[in-house]
Design a protein around this nucleic acid. Structure first.
Length: 423
DNA sequence: TCTGGGGTCCTAGGACCC
DNA sequence: TCTGGGGTCCTAGGACCC
């Protein structure tokens, strides 16, 4: 029996261990740190729009709640407006309310819930804090939004111990000690399984999944638990008699490709078998930057022209500002409309120059708007920029970073052949 | 009294080029 | 003389995620 040389043993490839970390009821937990007197009570956070502030009778965005007794906190039943729930505490979830539910609908289910306005600035502070703790311990982290990250444990010292449990526990404990917030962690051979695993022992839990656990731990789960299978795909699967991931795994690739197309079918097959080769990505360039807003009341393109125009211009200014702050130029400008019947329409148009100028974006967006049906009342208007290029890599490209001379702007616009008459 | 805002990725057709 | 086959870019819509 040959003995492995020590050097080879030391460089033997480590098993791939990927963690998914998910903060528990993130926004709600941050609010509970600020208002500990709300612990155990049903609390809903939502809105973020002016009516919420009005309903809460807060002065000019100032948060005065900590000065008043719990009995006087604003209640969900007193709210009127178009907001949705962003997060609910576990106490509130027991009444069946949850993320993305309209506040008015939630008020029926749980009228006594306390309603708090969202405070993104505060959540971002905590988000940065917990991510800094993670990267201090394990530097290969992929940002998946305010409250979620993937972490590559593979080559981190201790990352292999107990399948990743030791390192997960360290990160979880450090985050709690330094922020007071709990999180759930799943560690598995890849992102797909890690994401599922992080849900297993929520809240404040850790779950370890190995390849050999596939049949026992993954196959009994409903297909909907696969990140990427949403309500539509799930409905279609159920129509085909497939409820669980295990049932999905019994189908052949060809059968899945026949029903879902080349790409989705092949992906579903891999997912059902626990396969996922996506790397943990540290940084990525944005594909688009956009702003949108839902009006307090539906607006009509003709009857409310002035009001709509002002909102439209403001959205363009915000997008331009976002581009400039983040250091990008765009080549495509688009709009999004949502009508009173909730139907959506988009129009977009590619420029011949790169720009981050509000007036140019406004002009292009205006042309897009004229190509959209404007007979129905609108509930939402959005402005989107895409085909982005970082400013520093745009050297030598035709630029339009400031408002161009009128003749140039005109040239850019009239060169779009199908629309000269609209301007 | 339904249903936010900010994203990514995929599909599919048409234009246009080789 | 009747219709191939790639490739890329643009546009619109939709599924999905946080």
């Amino acid at each position: 029996m040959p003995v492995k040389p020590i050097s080879e043993a030391q460089t033997a490839p480590q098993a791939r261990r990927i963690a998914h970390l998910d903060m528990d009821a993130f926004y709600a937990s941050v609010e509970l740190l600020r208002y500990p007197q709300l612990k155990g009570l049903p609390v809903v956070i939502g809105g973020g729009r002016r009516p919420v502030d009005d309903a809460l009778q807060l002065g000019q965005g100032e948060c005065l709640l900590h000065k008043i007794p719990v009995a006087q906190f604003p209640l969900l039943k007193d709210y009127t407006g178009r907001g949705v729930i962003t997060t609910a505490t576990y106490a509130a979830r027991q009444f069946g309310v949850g993320s993305a539910m309209g506040l008015m609908k939630a008020a029926k289910l749980c009228p006594q819930a306390i309603l708090l306005p969202v405070d993104f600035a505060e959540y971002r502070r905590y988000s940065k804090a917990f991510k800094a703790i993670v990267t201090d311990i394990a530097p290969l982290m992929e940002d998946r939004g305010v409250d979620e990250v993937y972490i590559d444990f593979t080559d981190v010292p201790g990352g292999q111990r107990e399948g990743g449990r030791v390192l997960a526990r360290l990160i979880q404990k450090t985050i709690f000690q330094q922020t007071g917030l709990t999180c759930s962690v799943g560690v598995a051979p890849n992102k797909l399984l890690a994401k599922m695993a992080s849900e297993f022992n929520k809240p404040n839990g850790i779950a370890i999944v190995h390849e050999s656990d596939l049949v026992q731990m993954i196959w009994p789960l409903p297909c909907r638990k696969i990140n990427g299978i949403g309500p539509k795909a799930d409905e279609k699967l159920q129509g085909l008699g497939i409820q669980t991931i295990g049932e999905l795994a019994q189908k052949s690739v060809d059968w899945l490709i026949d029903h879902f197309g080349q790409k989705t079918g092949a992906w579903m097959f891999d997912a059902a078998h626990g396969l996922d080769h996506r790397p943990v990505v540290l940084e990525s360039e944005p594909v688009s930057i956009s702003r949108e807003t839902t009006f307090e009341q539906d607006l009509h393109a003709v009857r409310n022209k002035a009001e709509l125009g002002a909102i439209f211009t403001r959205l363009c200014e915000q997008v331009a500002d976002d581009l400039q702050r983040k250091g990008y130029l765009c080549k495509t400008v688009g709009i999004k409309l949502r009508y009173d019947n909730f139907k959506c329409v988009t129009r977009d148009q590619t420029l011949e120059v790169l720009t981050c100028d509000a007036a140019t974006i406004r002009k292009m967006a205006g042309l897009c708007l004229k190509r959209a049906p404007l007979d129905r009342p609108l509930r939402l208007l959005g402005v989107r920029t895409a085909s982005l290029m970082p400013v520093d890599s745009a050297e030598g490209k035709p630029l339009n970073r400031l408002a161009p001379p009128e003749s140039e702007a005109q040239a850019a616009i009239t060169s779009i052949a199908f629309l000269p008459q609209l301007f």
